[in-house]
C-alpha cells in the first residue's frame, strides 16, 4: 500500500502544476476576453497573396 502515498504525491503535484499554469494564464489576462476566441476559430485562411501582387502592380503604375 505504500505505493499509494507515492501516487498521491504525484497526483497532487500534477494538479498543483496545472493550478500554477492556470494562475499564470489568468494573471496574463487570458480569461479577459471570453467572447473573442470563440469567434476567431471560425476564421478560414483564404489568403493567397493576391493583394501583395496588387500592391506591386500599383507601385509599378506609380513609377
Amino acid at each position: 500500500m505504500p505505493v499509494l502515498i507515492i501516487l498521491m504525491a504525484c497526483s497532487l503535484l500534477v494538479a498543483a502544476g496545472f493550478l500554477i499554469a492556470f494562475i499564470v494564464s489568468a494573471r496574463h489576462g487570458q480569461f479577459d476576453d471570453t467572447a473573442g476566441p470563440a469567434v476567431r476559430m471560425l476564421e478560414d485562411s483564404t489568403f493567397t497573396g493576391k493583394h501583395i501582387l496588387n500592391q506591386k502592380n500599383k507601385a509599378h503604375a506609380g513609377n
Partner: peptide, 21 residues
C-alpha cells in the same frame, strides 16, 4: 482596469483545485 477580475478568476481556480482534491 480589469485586474480585479484576474483576482476573482485566480480565487476560483485555487478554490476549485482545493475543492476537488
Amino acid at each position: 482596469a480589469g485586474l480585479i477580475n484576474h483576482d476573482l478568476i485566480t480565487r476560483i481556480g485555487v478554490a476549485g483545485f482545493c475543492f476537488g482534491n
